[in-house]
Design a protein around this nucleic acid. Sequence first.
RNA 1: GGGCGGUUAGCUCAGCUGGUAGAGCGGCUGGUUUACAUCCAGUAGGUCGGCGGUUCGAACCCGUCACCGCCCA
Length: 881
Amino acid sequence: MLDKHYDATGVEQKLYERWDDSGAFSIGSRDNAQPYTIVIPPPNVTGSLHMGHALNNTLQDILIRHERMRGRDALWQPGMDHAGIATQMVVERQLAEQGLDRRDMGRDAFIEKVWQWKAESGGLIGKQLRRLGASADWSRERFTMDEGLSEAVLKVFVDLYEEGLIYKDNRLVNWDPKLLTAISDLEVQQQEVKGHLWHFNYPIEGEECRYITVATTRPETMLGDTAVAVHPEDERYKGLIGKHAVLPLVGRRIVIVADDYADPEQGSGAVKITPAHDFNDFEVGKRHDLEMINILDREARINENAPEAYRGLDRFEARERVVADMEAQGLLVEIEDHTHMVPFGDRGGVPIEPWLTEQWYADAATLAAPAIKAVEEGKTKFVPENWTKTYYEWMRNIQPWCISRQLWWGHQIPAWYGPDGEVFVAHDEDAAQVKARAHYGEDVALERDPDVLDTWFSSALWPFSTLGWPEETPELQRYYPTDVLVTGFDIIFFWVARMMMMGLHFMKEVPFHTVYIHALVRDEKGAKMSKSKGNIIDPLELIDEYGTDALRFTLCAMAAPGRDIKLSKQRVEGYRNFATKLWNAARYCQMNGCAPDATFDPAMAKETVNRWIVSEMARLRLRLDEAMASYRFNDAAQALYQASWNIFCDWYLEFTKPILLGTDEAAIKETRAVTAWALDQLLIMMHPIMPYVTEELWQQLDDNRETQLIRSGWPEYGEEAIDADAAAEMDWVVRLISLIRGIRSEVNVPAGAKITALVKDGGDIAETRMARHQDLILRLARLETITPSQEIPKGSAQAVIDGATVVLPLESVIDIEAEVARLKKAVGKAEGEITGIDKKLSNEKFLANAPDEVVEEQRERRAAAVETRDRLKEAVARLEA
RNA sequence: GGGCGGUUAGCUCAGCUGGUAGAGCGGCUGGUUUACAUCCAGUAGGUCGGCGGUUCGAACCCGUCACCGCCCA
């Protein structure tokens, strides 16, 4: 017998082990089935489960479990990302606590430390994903730095280099002066900062007391100025173009150039140009062939290219000094308050510095072309579709991808330098030596490039590297391309776009047919969850409190496409109650001997209530599969919730009580079988979303099941299983009972009081239905009797259903006036409807243009409303008589 | 500045191709109806942000304005 209460925590651990141990998550046992593949967005090895992961992985698991039950050979490929900067920072911080510095211990020892850290405390998130119920094939778990994936990275780098799609270049990069590495555009966050705009006078060369005024938010960069730019059409400065200014503090002669970049509307219209420290100025510098003077070292201190007085100063100290010195020389014109955007490194947290260095780049524009085309041709579709535009927007304006990082943790770049700096890119040092020998004609000492690759370089290969590439494995053959990628919009650029590029380039096929973009999870006020705001809701705490199923159902129910999710505990609690409801319903079934019977065919059911619930299950199955096919997770959740609670529990189980308590053995037997069958259907269809409570019930309700629920088949019945007559009949019964309950409540009949009901003008249909379902109508409407009658006692409460008048003789308790008012209100409502429909039906254009079925529907609706109104009017007349 | 999204019941949100506005929570009323008080029954509450247009018909399509949010400069 089922326990009185469902113990989520105990059940979850037990079942997860049972699934995993039995190989339920593994591929390899369904060779004839069509494969279905999802690769997990690999969480950072440093990560712990937050709400975004919970949502992301719940949705993937729902898809995987659904397809697995539908018979597909479902592979959910798990793994983790080495997360270059993030991981290196974690380990460095730990070392710092012990007073150690990676630079003292050396590269190899440091990397050793990182691996050690990974073995000990990395991968916590894997355990957490298991608590979430993730049915990934853990036997295939991969890591972006493992041997096979590293091999893939090497091959991709060497191949792209040989094709000219990877190259070295000397240009401005986003330099993080704290982490001492280049970072990509995407790792830079623009933040609004309240600063100042300093207006400086630069003296014009050879002209006494003539100045050109420039404004800047970064005074210290003037030490590297090599020009002043003005707009070519700007009348104020036409005479100065081609002349020179003398750079104060430095004394350098700098040219005044004409360039569209100078905006006449901004400030004075003249702008100082520092080509080595600003991306826009860099472009201006190239156009005018200006000298590029780098005045900052890698930690953003002033270097030897600036006058001695400033050398060694930090960039912010230098700023103060420059302003003070300019003021002392009388060249500071004005200081304006100014709010502007400052680029910050998303990891280091300090303003990044545009800095001139040599780095490795991937030719993103060339790689992007096929990736754009594939989406244009519909080979990969975004759901919701509007993300396509975001993808295009970025891909069509893509910049060279800086792929080198000055870190130690990551894939070291396979490039070796000869004594003269000649570079040899090869799979390994031996291969590089061969190339070097060919170049120099003799063996030389080679030195490997110390840099590592951007973390996203390896994750770009994830959909095929995890399947064994570059080896031609059977898995690669079978499971690539994958089916759907589930992710948040925040990494469309970082990850999705790059997987598209690499997948198409190396596999010649898109990595996935569908990209499902889900929402961001926010707190209940709509703010993005973050540690600094302290508004993080920990999914594991919710799991502890309400159970995994409740959390999963909540996330699924809220995953409407295209909108952020505001998560509240109250909602989770509601779905915990839903799981409890299901548990109790199952207990009830068990107590009433409704045991699953595999040989029972629901199509054979004779009782109307049973035929009806079979129809309802068929309708659910159709709705559910449609919702799943279009990734409408919220619709799927809603369909299940309604069918379970509002149909199965609220009505069906109540309907069958009179049968089960009765004496008709054949009906009892059939009803038990159908009840057990319907419950099974709910468990099956609910399982992808609420795997634990459903599996537990599945196993406890029948000890003899041959399969676990996770492996059971998905229903296939559909329209043919729907009995429209039974549905109409039970719908009428539901409405009748609701109607009577409503009247009782409105005229204040005590809940416990049993009363009688009469039905006038019911006709054959209503009378047959009444007779057939008398027991359950009496029980659910709490009536003594219900009988057809043309006689209506004085002072009765009345209501109308499908042309029949339901009469509750209550002369002693009823307030006639109130009852008349109630009925008149109903008359008014019916008349309002009739008027509305008449307006349409008398409109010739409506009759001419609307589809026939719409017109017909309006006519039927009018007829019904007229009938209802007339019956209600009669009822009023009887009361007033 | 460019792009995207939002504005529907007190709150949080559904409403897919235009054809009678829905759910959960909360509120109110009443319930020890032998599965469930983590429950049951009933009930109130909406000019679908404003204005204009298209249409026989608009929460839904178009235009415009207002406010909110996100992304990219």
